[in-house]
Every structure is written in structure tokens, then in C-alpha cells.
Design a protein around this nucleic acid. Sequence first.
DNA 1: TTGTATGCGTTATCAT
DNA 2: ATGATAACGCATACAA
Lengths: 342, 342
Amino acid sequence: MTKRYASSTDVANLAGVSQSTVSRCFGGDTKVSPEVKARVLAAAEKLAYRPNLLPRIMLTDQSKIVAFVTGGLHNPFYSRVLEEFIKRLQDMGCQVMVFHVESDDSLDAVAPRLSGYRVDAIVSALSVLTDTALEQFTKLGIPLISFNTRLQKKGLYSISSDNMLAGQLAARHLIEEGGQRLAFIGGPDNNPANIDRCHGFTKEAQKHGITPVILNDEFTFAGGARQAAKLFAMSQQPDAIFCADDLIAMGVIDTLWRTSGIKHPDTLRVVGCDDIPQASWAPYDLSTIQQDENAMINRAISILEKIYADTLEEEDGQYMVECHMVVRSSSKTGVLLPARTI
Amino acid sequence: MTKRYASSTDVANLAGVSQSTVSRCFGGDTKVSPEVKARVLAAAEKLAYRPNLLPRIMLTDQSKIVAFVTGGLHNPFYSRVLEEFIKRLQDMGCQVMVFHVESDDSLDAVAPRLSGYRVDAIVSALSVLTDTALEQFTKLGIPLISFNTRLQKKGLYSISSDNMLAGQLAARHLIEEGGQRLAFIGGPDNNPANIDRCHGFTKEAQKHGITPVILNDEFTFAGGARQAAKLFAMSQQPDAIFCADDLIAMGVIDTLWRTSGIKHPDTLRVVGCDDIPQASWAPYDLSTIQQDENAMINRAISILEKIYADTLEEEDGQYMVECHMVVRSSSKTGVLLPARTI
DNA sequence: TTGTATGCGTTATCAT
DNA sequence: ATGATAACGCATACAA
């Protein structure tokens, strides 16, 4: 590959000044005489000079790059979070490098790059942060912010919703609305958020003498559809379902549409979790537990700012964000069915 | 900021060898005696040595970083594309740095970073690539791949659907289905894809003696909802709508649900564009023009491969991907209404 | 096989 | 105000 860029030395030669002077012209606040500066700028323009940021990284041990590790952007929750992160970090003068991790294996490919590019911090937006993965990350010695998975270890920062509360709120609401046969459809059963939501839900239901049916699948539309089919085939169909995320809930509702398996839709109450934009779309009008995304993102950003300011404190380690019920019609009047079959 | 990482020199000192030897141990194919290598690896382990990739970038003029410039990940089309890109590039040994650009202003902040981090290529996934933006990018001298916006200039690579065809297909289909009063709801009227879709749609409609109503807004759900409200308030309501993307179409259908303004939903046919996952969700069951996303991504990846192999040819400049109609019920039996109002 | 020396493009320090 | 020099961490050509 041929030489792509002119260096400050090239510019210096053309302008007849020293390399340091060129550096000063682009550095900002140092003093350069107007005539010289003009000459340098002209030379730079002619050579299409673009300052290289990499040497600075080596000198300062700061790349201004934050790694965002995701397991899937198909979930609108995560793509929104990512977008917000990018905007905020960009304003802070930082870049976002996004990595995709599907399994612990793919981590082996990713880990060396995180350190290789000297990213200043890692934001894990993995729905499942396994112990292996966690260890891989921590071994790198890079500050790790875990989004959605609660962690205890010190030196690690975790931000999550109060997922137990989410489950409790859902159960309480569904029972208040008249639900008697409760069900939970969740994501992977090794996912901490899923576990907490399920636990909070079950505990609250049991307070009312109800033991919910529990099914786990993926955090996807398809997962919801699959498990709903199972539920609707049961002899005692549930009349109130809490889904561990909105996509699952939508998959459930879709299955209902397609099969019309429930004769009296008014009696099926569905609650999701996340409050993604699609939840408020009219045909679903999904009651859901709203995660305070903004609070979560704000928190993550504030930790990043502290990392850059080098003012992190012990108590910054764990952060739990409140969540609350957003009541829409999917749990009040039940799930709607179309006027005619498709 | 304190020194974060051990360097190859640190490892060399501890292992009692020269820095070059350490380099060789991590470099791969060069010869190092087993005993020495073991000693070096042990020292590296003890110091938690992570090779720094940045010097290599300076030496080779290759960062293995590809910039992905987006205007919004809320659109599932783009978040899917991004995810796919990340996966594919990761397999190629490359990283993706994502930048968010909302206006030509925010470009000024982004442009110096693209060159500053020495990204090897820029993928623009902007829905609107303005002339100013284009110029900013090209000035950097970095290979530019425009996703969705057709470009003529040489040295630039563009990949797009055949958007004229998309419009034609939609018009033909809607008319075949009995549509007589056609409407088009599009995104920004400076967006090339939007212009082409509108043009193809209008031309085909006129062949059949129909002049469609044309409305433009944003490429969002909200935009569709807004314009639908206008349409439904017209004295002569349209009976067939082509929306320039699926989100718009879903916004239209939602407005219909909420207002129940159209008395006989069987007579309203809606077609979208993109075929995002949500399009096949039961309540919408949206007929749409499927963009061959995979073909587009494959093409982009193949250009990137050529960039890395330095084998780009003249004819790689422009690429247009076929698209085709996916017929679902929103255009066949019309848009569904719920069994009862919400 | 291993060590020495040089260079990549900056910024910062020191001297002029 | 400007120039010379060192340093960041690595890879490579060359010497041993």
C-alpha cells in the first residue's frame, strides 16, 4: 500500500519551516506568527494534510475510543442505546468502535483488538455476560461498564434496571386486571435480567396464591411466537402473560392473531418489558415495563466522564435504575383481534 | 494518566532478550527458539502485555478500521445493515467505527476524525448524502462507499436498489389490485432514493391515466402518521398508498387504526418499501418492495475486500441491486381494522 | 537464531 | 516566535 497521507514534516518542508511549527499551527493555543501560519496552512492545503491522531494516542495513553460490545442490534432497545451512545460520546470528542459477540468463542477474536486499539473503556451491551466473557474482559485491564448485567466485582461498573421490581409490577398489574392463570415467557435462562424478572414475577404472584407457568426461549419475536403456540395449546390456557421483553410480547400477540386460538381475546392480558418504540404502535398498544433507558445511558456516560477525568470512586460500581409500568390496552381490555381473518 | 500497558520493551527486559525478539514472538511466522519463546511468553503473561496495534498502523498505512456513517439507527433497515457489516468485517479482521451525522454541521466534527484515525474506508449509510457532505468526504481521500445514494463520480462506489423499479412495481401492483386514487408518502424530497421511488411510481401511474397525490415527510413512523392524517382528511380519499419506506407505511396504518377514518378498510391498499422484519408482523402484514439487503451488503463487502487487496477496477463504481414485490395482505385484502375500537 | 538500529507522525521540552 | 530533540511502541532491514 502506497503512502496515503502527507505528514507534518512534508508540510514543513514545503512551507520552509520546522515540523514543530506545523504541529503548533494545528495544535490550537500556541503562538505562531500570522505570516508563518498562513504559509503553513497553504502548504497543508496543497498537500491535503490531515493530522494523524495515532501518535498522540501512544503518547498520552488515551485513544478517545470507547468499545461497544453487542450481541445483536436487531433488538431496537440496543440499537437505540447504541445510537444514543454514539451521539453523546461524539460530543465528548470520543469515537465508538462496535464489536459483535455471539459466543464466548467469538470473544477470543475480539479481546485482543480491544486492547490492541487501546480503547479507553468497554461498554458491554451483551444480554448475557458469561463468566468466561467477563474474565476475558477484565484480564485486559480496561474499565468495563456492564449494561444490563449486574456485577459485584470492584473495578467493574454495572448499570441495570431493577428487574425484580419489573417482575413484581407486572404480576401485580396483571392480577389487578383480573388475571388468574399467569404465565411468564422469558429469554435465555442464564440471563441475569431474565432471571430477576422471572423471580420478581413469580414471587409476587405467589403472594396472591398463584404459581405461574414459566417458559424460556430467546429475547426475540420468534421466541415469543414459539412459546405462545405452546401456551395456547395447553388445556388450561393462561389469561395473563408477562414477557421478559417487548419483542417476545409482540411475538405472542402475533401468534394470537395468526391462530385466533383464544376465543375471547378480551380475557388475555399481555405485558412486555422495555417499552421500545414499537410497543406503542396501535395494533399492539402494549402495556410494558418501561426501562429508564435515558437514566441508564446518562449513568454510563457519567462513568465514562469520570474515567476520562480520573475521578472514579468506589461507590460508582453498581447502579440500579427504577422502572415503572406503562399501562396500555394490551393488559386493560386485552389483546385485539382483527375484524376478519387474514 | 498513568502508564497503562506494558510495552514489548518491558517484556524484553524482564525476559532478558531484545525488543525485536519479543516482537517476533507475537509476530507469527518468524523463527524464535522454543526456550526463548517460552521465556518471553512467560514474561508477557506476568506483565499482562497486550501488543499495541497503533504503531503498525503508522508503519503500514492500514488501520483495519472501517468507518460507518449513519444518520439514524432507529430505522431497523440500517441497524440490520450495521450489524451485518460488523460481523462480516470482524471476520475480515477489521473493526467498525460508527459515526452519527445529522446535518452538514455535525460533519465538520466527524470528518477530521475519519482521517485522524486513518480509517481505511468510509461506508456512508446516510439516507441523504448532500453535496456538501460528499465533498467533505471525498476531500479526505478515503475510499467512499455510498450505501443507498447513487453516485457518478469516479473514485466513489455506490450501491443502491433500483428505486425507480421499486416505484413502478408498487404502482403496477396497486392498480392491478383495483386502486384508482393513488397516493405516495415519502421521505425527505432531497433524498435520491425517495426521488427515484416517487418518480417510478408516478410514471407508472400516469401510464394508466392516474396522477397520484404526493406527500413528503421524514422516513419515520411519525412522518407516515402525520401525512396519513392529511390524506384521510381529503374529500377524495386515496384508496391505494405507496410509502417510501416500511416505517412510513406502518405509521399510515396506525393512523387508520387510531382514527378509523376510512369506513371500508378493504378498499385501502398499502405498500411499503424495504421489507424490514416488522413488515411481516401479523397486524400489519405489509406488502412491500423488498430491497435485496444481502446483495447490497455483499457488494459493499466485496468492494472493501478489493480495497484491501488493492484490486479495484473502474467498473466497480456503480452497482444497482434488483428489488421485488413481496405481496402480503395489506394490499390484497386491504388494511385490517380491529374487532372493536381501543 | 538473536541483537542493533532506524523509522512511522506526532507532542512536549528545551534551547535559541 | 521558532527550531532541535526525545519519546511513544512496534516492525523491519541489517549485522552478528
